[in-house]
Write a protein that binds this DNA or RNA. Structure first.
Lengths: 338, 338
DNA sequence: CCTCCTCGTGGAATCGATTACACGAGGGAT
DNA sequence: ATCCCTCGTGTAATCGATTCCACGAGGAGG
């Protein structure tokens, strides 16, 4: 592959001049410029990004470490991050942590070894050692979706509190009183916050949230299935199951179907994170939608601000309730209303 | 960040010795080794992958350019590729072409600029200029899922021919005779092959495939909707719609629902590419499943073989039919059987 | 006509690693 | 005792860019 030296030779100038043309530095004569450009064309020369990065100490690359690429929410997030980054002249390298701290660490280290300019992380757990090192080590970093308390890093996320309250209001209005939740891992902020919001909203309606109605999931479909089976085995099973992410909702749906029960007639279902498929499930699923695209864009903006020396901003965007048919349609009265 | 010089100084040896320890070269005394290791530990030194790549002319990175990350089929493919690559000590940079040749070109060029060791591509169209240059330029390359005729690059893909025949047999057995297909872009191999396979299988049953029953889609949901509406507007609409990918099936489902029609009672639906959500749609959708994970692994294997100087192998794996309920359940006879 | 500035250019240092080559010390064979 | 080989180590070249500095030419101003 042709190097800058070959171009210089071909154009009859020094490498310095070639470099100047390529980075359109002002002091290059028109003549030299055309000769260099012609040589570049003739040789099909493309600058070696590796060499350039070594010298300039910047790669124009962002790292994105997410918990699970197979989760449509994160896929969409990754896509909007890549788009926003590209618009700003950055590339993105995605690392999939699969909800495993060790894998998260592997990716963070690999990305750091590659000297990425900045890191976007949706931390899998309370913070793997490598991640904390990176944060303290001064690597420009922004948390997205989830974050770690006590680490001084900007956070870009959605606040689902209001939407969860809307959901509980909706469920209450439909006459449901026994509400259960499939929670995410307590070590993740999204895992614990969603339970908290749910509990608080229920408290507003004077509905208790017994421990038996809090199932511990891990944001994967299989855990949704397992937890839901547990709920259905209870002497007094819940009337509603609220899954803290879309994959666990999928698992819940499986479990419910396996019992030959129907949604929403026998049991209602709602989920955090809205995805295109929820429109087409049987029945369409009521969900809390995050502004995923905007989240990705805001995260990139914050990170690039930080990289380029401007003060980065934490951003919190509201999520909103999308009512479909999985919680019942008409105001049904299961029990006497007060 | 600490460099190899700092480590050398700290350990009281030369940089050459440090490098030898790091790459566990045999001729280093035990004493020097322990001193270097201690210095590495003390400084939290991590080798600069950029510098190393410049010198060794290899990045231990693979590029993967796919057509659409939001398509679960490609997401899954990307994931299995990353896993397989990681197992072999390679990282993967994913480029999302969004079915756009210009974006595909952008990613190929960016990846080449970064001097990735090899490229995995699922070409969006007949072959963007940059991609063809890369192929001819000797960059190790493997096509996955789709390929380009006349370019000498190994191909790893699934053959759906037999599964399509099984599907047509299934539909025929259910009494369906008017079968329509939503095709993918003719410029992609998967786009044209699936139509061909469908046509041939129908010919075996003596069923014609009129042009009116071949709709031109682009592998995106919206095109599935549009084409399906066209089918439904025909004087004699088809009894079955077969979508050449999962997103177009989603669009088809939308269009059918919008007319207030029901699947499979009013019209049957089947899709190429099986995804987890198809189990949960209303009704569950009959689909042709590709061995996606195995495809990703085989592609990485072929590419790494090529990179490391072993002869790479093209691989073709069979797809298989997964019957669900979207084409009708019991053998219904709509018209007299011959 | 001389001086000073500006402009275009090239030489060479530099980034952080790997690695060919040289060299000295020590041990075994003769 | 001499020679030779092996082993451990260091010096320095190298990868492909960017960029500081020096230098010569040419124009403007006195």
């Amino acid at each position: 592959m042709a190097s800058i030296k070959d171009v210089a030779a071909e154009a009859g100038v020094s490498v310095a001049t070639v470099s100047r043309v390529l980075n359109d530095h002002p002091s290059v004569s028109a003549d030299a410029r055309t000769r260099v450009l012609a040589a570049v064309q003739a040789l099909g020369y493309r600058p070696n990004a590796v060499a350039r990065s070594l010298r300039t100490d910047q790669t124009r690359t962002l790292g994105l470490v997410i918990s699970d690429v197979l989760n449509p929410y994160f896929t969409k997030l990754a896509r909007s991050v890549e788009e926003a980054a590209r618009a700003l002249g950055y590339s993105v390298i995605i690392g999939n942590a699969d909800e495993r701290p060790d894998l998260q660490d592997h990716h963070v280290r690999t990305l750091l070894d590659r000297r990425i300019d900045g890191l976007l992380v949706s931390p899998t757990d309370g913070g793997s050692p490598g991640m904390l090192d990176a944060a303290r080590g001064g690597t420009p970093m922004v948390f997205v979706d989830r974050w770690i308390a006590g680490v001084d890093v900007p956070v870009v996320r959605a606040d689902g509190r209001a939407a969860v309250r809307d959901l509980v209001a909706h469920l209450h209005g439909l006459g449901h009183r026994r509400l259960a939740i499939i929670a995410g891992p307590a070590a993740t902020t999204t895992g614990s916050e969603r339970v908290e919001a749910f509990r608080e909203a229920m408290a507003e309606y004077g509905i208790p949230l017994p421990d038996a109605y809090i199932g511990q999931g891990d944001f994967q479909a299989e855990s949704g299935r397992r937890v839901t089976e547990g709920f259905l085995d209870l002497a007094e099973p819940p009337e509603v199951v609220f899954a803290a992410d879309n994959l666990m909702a999928l698992g819940a749906l499986d479990a419910i179907r396996a019992r030959g029960m129907r949604v929403p007639d026998d049991i209602a279902l709602a989920a955090f994170d809205d995805i295109p498929w929820f429109v087409h499930t049987d029945p369409p699923i009521t969900a809390i939608a995050q502004p995923t695209g905007e989240l990705g864009r805001a995260a990139v903006r914050a990170l690039v601000d930080r990289i380029e020396g401007r003060p980065p901003q934490s951003v919190t965007l509201p999520a909103r309730l999308v009512v479909r048919r999985s919680c019942g349609e008409s105001p049904v009265t299961n029990r006497s209303q007060s």
